[in-house]
């Protein structure tokens, strides 16, 4: 099983190298960084430099989950590979999740990418006073994002309307996930909603790890990221199972 997962991850790298569409978010990341840093510089709020570097990275991680991971099963279906995959002795969920894990790992490169843009173009080296918290939170976010992506991958095959709304998921998620503006600064009525979005816990932790001040309540907050992300995995596994049932029962996964 581990051998299969590794082979699928390797395959995903090869596939992504040939697909500009999948890597688009990584190409966009430096420009987003430039935009946010220009705002910081113009407003003279140097204290927000860390925010301006984290935001484009989180945008990239989500955009790749949405555009690359989310389309894995849908593309296999349109290109006639899904049935062949079902006929193979490998469990489809393992195949899909390994590929999504690789995409998520690659998307995390954007953290370094955005840091470098700040360093090279704006001469700002963002320091990380709590490196372990920073890395741990990133890992938790990666895990949760992969879970969310697996749910999207199943959803985009099962319902046509989900695909129509695919484009619409990005900015609402950026707002609720506190990608740039901390959830605490959002209008009162939105705040309860941010609590159920794993990224809002994650981005707050990341921002905390960049400030000198001691960080409060680390474990429960990381747990929130992992539990909410884990829900994504469960949902994803269930949806992929539904897709396979539909393929084997109906002959196709036609849109409901």
């Amino acid at each position: 099983m581990i051998r299969l997962a590794l082979a699928m991850a390797r395959f995903q790298i090869a596939a992504m190298r040939r697909s500009p569409h999948d890597l688009m978010a990584l190409v966009n990341a430096p420009l987003f960084t430039v935009i946010f840093l220009a705002i910081v510089r113009y407003t003279g709020r140097d204290d927000l430099t860390g925010y301006a570097v984290l935001a484009p990275a989180m945008i990239t991680v989500f955009a790749m989950a949405l555009l690359a991971s989310g389309e894995i099963i849908a593309n296999d279906r349109t290109d006639g590979r899904l049935e062949l995959l079902v006929a193979s002795p490998s469990p489809v969920a393992v195949v899909v999740l390994s590929r999504i894990a690789m995409i998520t790992l690659v998307s995390l490169v954007s953290v370094a990418e955005c840091w470098l843009v700040a360093r090279v173009l704006f001469g700002k080296a963002v320091a990380v006073p709590h490196p372990w918290l920073f890395v741990g939170t990133l890992a938790a976010i990666g895990l949760a994002m992969a879970g969310t992506a697996s749910a999207m991958a199943g959803l985009f095959v099962l319902t046509r309307s989900a695909r129509t709304f695919q484009n619409s998921l990005s900015y609402p998620f950026y707002i609720l996930g506190g990608v740039l503006v901390p959830p605490a600064l959002l209008p009162e009525w939105l705040r309860p909603l941010t609590q159920v979005v794993f990224l809002s816990w994650g981005t707050d932790l990341l921002r905390d790890s960049l400030s000198e001040a001691p960080v409060q309540r680390v474990l429960p907050r990381i747990a929130a990221v992992i539990v909410l992300g884990g829900t994504g995995f469960l949902l994803g596994a269930w949806l992929i199972h539904r897709v396979l049932l539909k393929v084997r029962n109906d002959g196709t996964v036609s849109h409901a």
Partner: peptide, 13 residues
Amino acid sequence: CQVSFFALIGRLI
């Protein structure tokens, strides 16, 4: 949402 996302930066500032 996109326009709000950027306009919210004004609140942050």
